[in-house]
């Protein structure tokens, strides 16, 4: 039964991560476009650093780093009169009240906490890629349109929200759909973050079972379980491809792009 719930875990992760990563990306892209130099540097550095390094490194790094950062901040707030150093040799020691989740919390709190750390990590990594795509898309919106908007007396902010943002999606969609495919294919890495996902259960349930421990003994079936996962991901990719193509057709309607022009000609 848990194996089927694990598919739910993966789908939930995708459903939650995609909007958050998009928000991170939007933030990064607007920061990189900003007129304020330090903000621009932050945006560009965010995009450059995350993209240059294998993202599995980030997955392994952020989970510990975020965990320690949160506990460190809570430690500073909740136990101001703690006098021992936090790093004692190879140990990371904070006071009991600063532990997250608290030692006496129920099991589901631990699972939810682990899962949210995973979501945040995915969002940070994929946010950088989304930022890059959106940054390019914002620049692809024909410049004459922004100038026209400003000639009509719109402020910088108005022209950004009313002209650039509605139109950038058609330019961003090829990049974003590619990113979605990669995000789907990155979900098995959840396993490395310690979440009990489908990879975990495929390994657990597929391993050989002896009659002593289970009613359904079988030999080593892990190959078949992973084969099933392979098929699951292939179907998922195919469905996404079809859906994204439909969205693209919808978004192109009436746009000043080659595809939009072709649509207009076909309709005439």
């Amino acid at each position: 039964m848990n194996m089927y719930w694990a598919f739910g875990t993966v789908l939930t992760l995708l459903a939650i991560t995609a909007p958050i990563a998009l928000a991170f990306g939007f933030g990064g892209a607007t920061a990189a476009r900003s007129n304020l130099a330090p903000l621009r540097w932050i945006g560009k550095a965010y995009m450059a650093i995350v993209r240059g390094i294998p993202d599995i490194v980030f997955f392994l790094f952020f989970v510990i780093a975020l965990d320690q950062a949160i506990e460190y901040v809570r430690h500073k707030i909740k136990c101001p009169d703690w006098d021992q150093p936090i790093r004692q040799g190879s140990d990371f020691v904070v006071c009991q009240a600063a532990k997250l989740p608290l030692g006496n919390d129920p099991q589901w709190m631990h699972e939810v906490y682990g899962f949210s750390l995973a979501v945040l990590t995915f969002a940070i990594v994929f946010g950088a890629f989304a930022a890059n795509v959106l940054f390019g898309a914002m620049r692809a919106v024909p410049h004459a349109q922004i100038e026209t908007a400003e000639a009509y007396g719109m402020t910088h902010r108005q022209s950004f929200w009313r002209i650039v943002v509605p139109q950038m999606w058609v330019y961003a969609l090829p990049g974003l759909s590619n990113l979605w495919m990669v995000l789907i294919k990155a979900t098995p890495l959840l396993f490395l973050l310690g979440v009990e996902d489908i990879v975990y259960w495929a390994r657990e349930m597929g391993g050989s079972k002896t009659p002593n421990f289970t009613d359904y003994p079988h030999a080593d079936w892990r190959m078949w379980y992973f084969g099933a996962l392979l098929v699951f991901y292939l179907c998922f990719t195919k469905v996404s491809e079809v859906v994204l193509d439909r969205i693209m057709v919808k978004l192109t309607r009436g746009q000043a792009t080659a595809a939009g022009e072709a649509q207009r000609k076909a309709a005439v």
Binding site: I184, K185, F191, V199, R203, G227, L230, Y233
Partner: peptide, 10 residues
């Protein structure tokens, strides 16, 4: 179409 990670396991 499938994750490299799963391909390795399989």
């Amino acid at each position: 179409g499938s994750p490299l990670f799963i391909q390795f396991f399989f």
